[in-house]
Amino acid sequence: MSSIAKKENLVYQRPALRTEKEYSFCPGCGHGTVHNIILEVIEEMGLQEKAIGITPVGCAVLAYEFMNIDMQQAAHGRAPALATAINRMMPDKAVFTYQGDGDLAAIGTAETIHACNRGENIVIFFVNNGIYGMTGGQMAPTTLPGMPSSTSPYGRDVETMGGPMKITEMISQLDGVYMSTRQAAHTPAYVRKLKKAIRQAFENQQARKGLSFVEIVTNCASGWKKTPTDANKWLEENMFPVYPLGDIKIDGKLVK
């Protein structure tokens, strides 16, 4: 082993901006990967001294324990409001929010839409796993039709509970949004695409182009009551058809 473990053979390492704190996420969860990629991009772009991240309420509430940058913890759904003020008063910083689907698409819908509409020069990371993870698997606005959750135990009934909300498509209609894209993080190939998108988002932010919105469709093995492997299979077979991956808006123009 010692003959292999050399610097020149290294293909992946712990991001330099990761703290020593172990991730508290469930086995198979996508959050850790997304955290890592964001930190890699911040480091590679040399933004550590400019970066100010806003954490949500939800599974990523403790992101500030894992990311070695200045961070603020927001009330549920309000991260884009915090980011707005920080961006307006310190326009030279690199401000981003990291939010889940309950935080961004339910309780924080107004803050999301209006930050997008004002074209705040921030990056919004939206991790969509179709369920409330931290509180124990309740229905989210993004839960699929018929999908069971602890508050839709017989499956989401679209007649009474509404259908899955495609908020990334919604906000893409607003002029203030410069870039929107939907990515995944469960295989190395998807991670490479995601990293490119995250880098583009921060480049837009640094070039003061307006708001960049990166949705990442991930699994929630615990909330979905599946093994991590089955959850990833279910993700591809059920989530991707409803939430198709790819760019939605690039350089301020909707992708045809």
Binding site: Q72, R78, A81, L82, T84, A85, A110, E111, I113, H114
Partner: peptide, 21 residues
């Protein structure tokens, strides 16, 4: 900076963000 927020809820959370800086 003077900003008209979308709600009182957003306004106070903007204050939180700014105060945190």
């Amino acid at each position: 900076v003077v900003l008209q927020a979308e709600s009182e809820v957003a306004a106070i959370n903007m204050v939180y963000g700014g105060a945190g800086c």
